[in-house]
Design a protein around this nucleic acid. Structure first.
Length: 574
RNA sequence: CGGGGCGUAGCGCAGCCUGGUAGCGCGCUUGGUUUGGGACCAAGAUGCCGGAGGUUCAAAUCCUCUCGCCCCGACCA
């Protein structure tokens, strides 16, 4: 396309309200504009990149046997009430009423709608399996939209849903999607890693997130260099330790100590001159309205998701002062397991400790030499803490590493969570009614684009991998007022176009420097510079954005060269 | 929702403390000179100073309320 005809408003200044690089560059490169918090327009350049990603997704989904559909964004409350999520999903679900006062929501995801479709049209095992997907706008009323299109409220998502007759089939469907996802992100030119993840409000038994490695990522990832283990920090496990024998031989008698205004682990540690590893933190949580005591070693952090899962709680938060006072009989800072009258669960980290220091459930007092089984009972030991540097791999025991990542995709084994609640059933070979087994698979399209920029930029702007590039090549005549330069540029432009290349002709009456800066900013992989000195020798310059390397070519050869570079770079990933 | 910050020309900002005719850089328009990494000269245009109320002879500036946006914590593609 001719630059003069393009709507491509580039900017020189970094927008004051954009924090992350991808957001800054997407605005400066004229890809997006913010309408209001968490809601963006895509301008032509940005939308071209979106469509590139969508196309790669379509090809790989189709190849994996999924079929594209398009479901409504507006969804009736009844479906959500049926699945139980009308109440469970919370404020993120944007609800509204129509003129007849009926309740609706904007779809944040489509399990309900797809399950309804399938249950109405599928009656027999002969019609299974099925995998349907769509690329569609989702709305989630995020608590805090941020980082531009990376976490916004309205966003494009590819979501796929599989329905199988049995576990084995469901497993196969999951594997197919897992493979498709690896292909998609590889073809997008991303450095990524699939990790084990928590299922969150989508539910289900098992899930993997696809993480694009980036310092600015919101997620922490734990991985083992020896084996294949990789997990989201919130999911990362600690192996169950062996119970030591004969601990009771070292038990000392319990001792009460006055500890005025000593509340935190650091304060207790300093006051009693005991290392934090010997102190037990007793945290009172409010689990669906009931207090629960969670015990953990003083130097560790509780992973609330693990606690939530172990307790099977729908809502979990740290208890407020009132609940703590009621549960322990003391203000915050003096809770302990001994004598407490609520459920007590404990992290593995305290399983093999003896002569613990804990709160006394009495203001300004702590206890020494408290021992498990003798002085209090633990309902169950479980993995409840956040993995820390220095911990070992739960699979092979080797050291683990920490990195940051951006979640661009998530695959779930849903099981029968929705099919059961919404009665998606079929008749099997024996004429018996069975519940379908589901999986669901999401990719954030806009987020994938932003993540790609986070991995591919320099001081001058974006550096698109070829498969993502909005245009593959830009032809830059250094001065449009010289007819020779323009004629050659036009020729090359037309030839590139006619052999199917995506090309911009920068026909603006600007100085060369301005054009170079813009080409770099918007990240076009290849640039053909048509200038007077080289053209005198019948040559033009071909510059590669990624490496900064440039070479001279005969005007007659440059088109073929560009064509072969593009073909090679697209083939490399396909 | 809790904590912090910001709303002044299309973009980036100064002015506010100590009230007195709204400014700078970039961009934009016109003319001219330039032309291989964001040129130069000249002449211009552009503002409900986020909104409402108040104090005052006088408010971008002080006070009250409100709306919006960004950042840090509870979520997720």
């Amino acid at each position: 396309m001719r630059y003069l005809e393009m709507h491509l408003p580039t900017g020189r200044e970094v927008p004051s309200d954009a924090e992350v690089v991808s957001n800054q560059l997407m605005i400066r490169a004229g890809m997006i504009r913010k309408l209001t918090s968490g809601i963006y327009s895509y301008l032509p350049l940005g939308y071209r990149v979106i469509r590139k990603v969508e196309q790669i997704i379509r090809e790989e989904m189709n190849r994996a046997g999924a079929q594209e559909v398009h479901m409504p964004m507006v969804q009736p409350a009844e479906l959500w009430q049926e699945s139980g999520r009308w109440t469970y999903y919370g404020k993120e679900l944007l609800r509204f009423r129509d003129r007849n006062d009926r309740d609706y929501c904007l779809g944040p995801t489509h399990e309900e709608v797809i399950t309804d479709l399938i249950r109405n049209d599928i009656k027999t095992y002969r019609q299974l399996p099925r995998n349907l997907y769509q690329i569609q706008t989702k709305f989630r009323d995020e608590v805090r939209p941020r980082f531009g299109v990376m976490r916004c409220r309205e966003f494009g998502m590819k979501d796929a849903y599989s329905f199988d007759a049995d576990e084995a089939g469901a497993e196969k469907s999951y594997e197919k999607m897992f493979t498709a996802y690896k292909n998609i992100f590889r073809r997008c030119g991303l450095r990524f890693r699939p990790v084990e993840a928590d299922s969150g409000s989508i539910g289900g038994s098992f899930s993997h997130e696809f993480m694009v490695m980036a310092e600015s990522g919101e997620d922490a990832i734990v991985f083992c260099e020896k084996c294949n283990y990789a997990a989201n920090l919130e999911k990362a496990e600690i192996a169950r330790p062996q119970k030591s024998a004969g601990m009771e031989n070292n038990w000392q008698p319990v001792e009460s100590v006055e500890t005025p205004c000593v509340r935190t682990i650091e304060e207790v540690s300093a006051f009693l001159n005991v290392p934090p590893q010997q102190i037990v933190k007793t945290l009172i949580f409010n689990a669906d309205g009931k207090p629960v005591a969670v015990l953990i070693r003083g130097d560790h952090e509780v992973n609330e998701i693990k606690v939530k899962n172990v307790l099977g709680a729908a809502e979990l938060e740290l208890a407020d002062d009132e609940m703590i006072l009621k549960a322990t009989g003391a203000p915050r800072g003096f809770a302990g397991a001994m004598g407490i009258k609520v459920r007590v669960i404990a992290d593995y980290s305290i399983m093999n400790l003896v002569n613990l220091v804990t709160g006394a459930n009495k203001e300004d007092y702590h206890l020494r030499n408290v021992n498990i089984d003798r002085d209090f009972k633990v309902e169950s030991f479980a993995d409840l803490r956040v993995v820390q540097p220095g911990d070992s791999c739960p699979r092979c025991g080797a050291a683990i590493q920490f990195v940051r990542g951006i979640e661009v995709g998530h695959v779930f084994k849903l099981g029968t969570k929705y099919s059961k609640a919404m009665r998606a059933v079929y008749l099997d070979r024996d004429g018996k009614e069975k519940t379908m087994i589901m999986g669901c698979y999401g990719i954030g399209v806009g987020r994938t684009v932003a993540a790609c920029i986070e991995q591919n930029f320099d001081a001058n702007g974006i550096i698109w991998p070829m498969p993502m590039a909005p245009y593959q090549v830009i032809v830059t005549p250094v001065n449009i007022n010289e007819p020779d330069l323009m004629k050659t540029s036009e020729d090359i432009y037309k030839q590139l176009q006619s052999c199917g290349m995506e090309v911009i002709l920068d026909d603006r009456d600007e100085r060369a420097g301005v054009k170079f800066k813009d080409a770099d900013l918007i990240g076009i992989p290849l640039r053909i510079v048509v200038g007077p000195k080289n053209l005198k020798d019948g040559q033009v310059e071909l510059k590669v954005r990624k490496t900064g390397e440039s070479k001279l070519y005969k005007t007659g050869d440059v088109v073929r060269e560009v064509q072969s570079i593009i073909a090679a770079e697209l083939k490399e990933v396909s």
